[in-house]
Amino acid sequence: MKQIVVHQEKCTACRECELACSFSHEGSFLPALSRIRIADFYEAQFYQPMVCVHCADAPCAAVCPTVAIQRQADGQISIIEDRCIGCKMCLLACPFGVMSFSPEKGVAQNCDLCNGDPQCVQFCTPGALEFADIIEASALAKQKAAAALGLPHA
């Protein structure tokens, strides 16, 4: 499944992804409404983009008391807004803290991959975000890491 692949080492915490996300979904430049967030550890100069990874065994979907969180045929975890009662149990269940909540609509929101054209990826100047097949991308990352250490790799 194609999803947002994060290259953490390239992230500069410029937060353009947050602005692009909130603008494309909510029509306003409000990072608080973004579905992608930068976890910033400024002192350590470590910035981790955090966004829904559409878990294989998604705790948010398991815990949802109204079956509002469902996996689509393509593998994506989606929130059916009409079914969501805004109980926030999914926010409490998500180990990554990447479930968002819209106070205006009173529903939970996660990364919907912008129908196959994620705006955060479009606007990520340093190239820390990529829209790619997650399995292939992690295999590639492993190969690169092995090569960097001078180890044999496929």
């Binding site: 608080a32 926030k88 926010l91 409490l92 269940a93 998500c94 180990p95 990554f96 803290g97 990447v98 479930m99 968002s100 909540f101 106070p103």
Partner: peptide, 11 residues
């Protein structure tokens, strides 16, 4: 509302 996401990480 949004602070609950942090509670998820602590969870």
């Amino acid at each position: 509302e949004n602070g609950v996401a942090e509670m998820g990480v602590i969870h």
